[in-house]
Amino acid sequence: MPQGLKLDSPRLEDGAALWRIARDSEVLDLNSSYSYLLWCRDHAATSVVARDADGSPVGFITGYVRPQDARTLFVWQVAVDHGQRGRGLAAAMLDGLARRAGEELGVQCIETTVTPDNTPSNRLFARFAERHDAPVEREVLFDAEVFPDSGHEPEVLHRIGPLPALAATGR
Rank of each mutant, 00 (worst) to 15 (best):
2 P>C: 09
2 P>W: 08
5 L>G: 01
9 S>H: 01
13 E>S: 11
14 D>S: 01
15 G>Y: 08
16 A>E: 10
17 A>V: 10
18 L>E: 03
18 L>T: 02
20 R>K: 09
22 A>E: 13
23 R>N: 04
23 R>I: 04
24 D>S: 11
26 E>H: 14
27 V>L: 12
27 V>D: 13
29 D>N: 06
30 L>K: 04
30 L>G: 10
31 N>P: 05
32 S>G: 09
35 S>E: 10
35 S>L: 02
36 Y>E: 05
39 W>G: 14
40 C>W: 01
42 D>V: 01
43 H>E: 07
44 A>P: 00
45 A>T: 02
52 D>H: 09
53 A>P: 01
54 D>H: 10
55 G>A: 12
55 G>W: 03
58 V>K: 05
58 V>F: 00
59 G>T: 03
59 G>F: 06
60 F>D: 02
62 T>D: 02
63 G>H: 06
64 Y>A: 15
64 Y>L: 15
66 R>L: 15
66 R>M: 15
67 P>V: 11
68 Q>W: 03
69 D>G: 09
70 A>L: 11
71 R>S: 15
71 R>W: 11
71 R>P: 07
71 R>E: 14
72 T>K: 02
72 T>F: 04
73 L>M: 04
74 F>M: 00
74 F>N: 00
75 V>D: 06
76 W>D: 00
78 V>A: 01
79 A>C: 11
80 V>Q: 12
83 G>I: 01
84 Q>M: 15
85 R>H: 02
92 A>N: 04
94 L>A: 11
95 D>N: 13
96 G>R: 06
96 G>H: 05
99 R>W: 08
100 R>I: 08
103 E>D: 11
103 E>S: 13
104 E>P: 01
105 L>V: 08
105 L>Y: 12
108 Q>N: 02
108 Q>C: 14
109 C>P: 00
111 E>F: 04
118 N>E: 14
118 N>Q: 14
121 S>F: 14
122 N>W: 03
122 N>K: 09
122 N>P: 00
124 L>M: 07
125 F>T: 02
127 R>L: 10
128 F>R: 08
128 F>G: 06
131 R>S: 14
132 H>G: 12
133 D>F: 12
135 P>V: 01
136 V>N: 06
138 R>G: 14
138 R>H: 03
138 R>N: 03
140 V>F: 10
140 V>Q: 13
142 F>T: 12
142 F>I: 04
145 E>R: 00
146 V>F: 07
148 P>Y: 00
151 G>F: 09
151 G>V: 02
155 E>P: 00
156 V>M: 10
157 L>R: 05
157 L>F: 03
157 L>P: 04
158 H>C: 13
159 R>I: 06
159 R>M: 06
160 I>S: 11
166 L>R: 02
166 L>W: 03
166 L>A: 05
167 A>T: 02
169 T>K: 08
171 R>S: 15
